[in-house]
Amino acid sequence: MLRGLVHVLAWALATSAAVTLSWWGVHTVMAGTAYDPPRALPITAGGATAKGTGAPLTSSTERPEASASPRDTPAPSPKPTPPKPAATRPGPSLTATAPSPSAPSSSRVKSYDTAGGRAVFDLGQTSAALVSATPGAGWSMQVFKTETWIRVEFSSGADRVSVFCTWHDGPPRVEIVNY
């Protein structure tokens, strides 16, 4: 009886150690990847405002108009969604978007809609960070990161759409490639 109890205790300790070691290894590898929870902007009861300034947040696709007070700012008009590209493409096509050199702040959040989904980046003056990436219906997604670029790849069957954000030789810039 005592011998069986010792075996069960040894098995329980070995299993606990193995599970703990496995969890720690996976947690260490996955830290800092796209699987981290996305950062969200705070929303207040009176509308979204920049933290500590009282100024309203603006859409990532529109520039705010200069006004005397935040109440004078007109509501942004809804933008039509861009047309989806055809499912068959003869070859890769390239769309490039460079950040504005006259950006007043040190970073800005910008969204890029593609046929495969949406990628949102926080573009600083010398680097960038992925805020979120959401695949469209029927599409899957993979994220690749290094110290000087981020690639978000959306795929569905033979179709591929990659959103590249690079900053290795200057300010961050985003390119969208359809395969």
Results as ranks from 00 to 15, higher is better:
W167L: 12
A133F: 00
G170R: 13
A158V: 09
D159P: 04
T146K: 12
A133L: 03
I150H: 08
D169T: 10
D169I: 10
S140V: 02
H168K: 12
F154W: 14
F144H: 06
V143S: 04
V143T: 13
S162H: 06
S155D: 11
G136D: 04
T148V: 12
S155K: 12
G138W: 06
F154K: 07
R151N: 11
T134C: 02
F164I: 11
G170K: 13
V163D: 04
T134N: 03
G157T: 05
C165Q: 05
S155F: 10
S156V: 04
W167E: 13
S162V: 11
V131R: 05
G138T: 05
K145F: 10
V131Q: 02
S162Q: 13
F164R: 05
F154E: 08
S132N: 15
L130D: 04
S140Q: 06
S155E: 10
S162E: 14
C165P: 04
F144C: 01
R160V: 15
S140G: 09
T146Q: 13
A158N: 12
S140W: 00
G157F: 11
A133R: 00
T134R: 07
D169F: 03
R160E: 14
S156D: 05
P172M: 06
G138I: 04
R160L: 14
Q142D: 14
T166I: 15
D159K: 14
V161E: 03
Q142T: 14
A137L: 10
R160T: 15
E153H: 01
M141K: 12
F154L: 13
W167C: 13
R160S: 14
R151C: 06
S155N: 13
P171K: 09
W139G: 00
D159C: 10
A137V: 07
G170N: 11
S132E: 15
T148N: 10
S156W: 04
S140F: 01
S132D: 15
G136R: 01
R151H: 07
Q142W: 03
F154S: 03
A133N: 03
V131N: 01
E147G: 13
E147D: 15
V163S: 05
S156L: 09
G138L: 07
E147K: 10
H168A: 15
M141R: 13
V143R: 05
C165I: 07
H168L: 12
C165W: 04
R151Q: 14
W149G: 04
T146S: 15
I150C: 05
P172S: 11
S132M: 12
A158F: 05
P171E: 12
G170W: 09
G138K: 08
D169R: 09
V131D: 00
E147N: 11
K145H: 14
P135W: 00
G157N: 07
P135L: 02
S132V: 08
L130A: 06
F164M: 13
F164L: 12
F144E: 06
R173I: 01
V143P: 02
G138D: 03
S155A: 15
E153I: 01
H168Y: 09
H168Q: 13
R151M: 12
G136T: 01
P172T: 04
A133S: 10
S156E: 06
A158G: 11
S155P: 07
A137Q: 08
T148M: 05
T166M: 14
A133D: 01
T146W: 09
F154V: 08
P135E: 00
Q142V: 12
M141F: 00
P172A: 09
V161M: 03
D159V: 09
